[in-house]
Amino acid sequence: MLKVKGLKVAVEGNEILKGIDLEVNKGEVHAIMGPNGSGKSTLANVLAGREEYEVLAGEVLYNGQNLLDMKPEERAREGLFLAFQYPVEIPGVSMSNFLKTALNELRDHHGQEKLDAMEFFALMREKLKLVNMDEKLLSRSINEGFSGGEKKRNEIFQMALLEPKLAILDETDSGLDIDALKIVSKGVNQLRSQDNAIIIVTHYQRLLNYIVPDFVHVLVDGKIVKSGDKGLALKLDEQGYDWVKDNVSEPVAA
């Protein structure tokens, strides 16, 4: 589904990603862990199409297409979803108008008819239940006045609604209390299937108790320095990142 090869990315002239190789297949859940500043969020955002990132080298194939050539909206319509680390507040755009527009653009792209008002609200209600959110949310402006937890749940709500093929969760767990974390995990686990894939970007192992990954990658200083199964996440949780960092500083024998 996703093939990242030798990806190097700079932000404002600073090289953040220094050669990432990553392959994610259908049905897999990958966790990308790493200390602050290691480039985790950069990777998530560059995959989603944020424009201020400069790709220096490498390529990204998404279902055989050159992902880096696609506009953010094209990526989204092709099933890529980013749950934002810091969802932006947009006063004056109601959630319902936003979601109706997004959903209809998606349906239009796939040659489906637009939903009528009844169908739309029925779908909203169903998905809101999944994240324990109130219908009142729909008449509010996007993320305006939402608590941190509400913002994160709103991201998962949107994910449930848009049913992406590849969901990237950018530190969705940070700042979440345990109840909200369970709700978010439940939402993500419902999406999980043989047909789609999930990349979880996180600093901590806690979320991975609820969403058990198939693979864990450790990103340090712009490179994936170690990959393993869920056991690796536990080890990181117990021992911190220092032991992996120390490994990196040693030149790797070819």
Binding site: G49, K71, E73, R75, A76, F84, I90, T101, L106
Partner: peptide, 18 residues
Amino acid sequence: DDEAMFYLRARGIGEEMA
């Protein structure tokens, strides 16, 4: 707001519409 623009586009809403 570029951030707001990106947020809408990342949900599949075209640049013009966003």
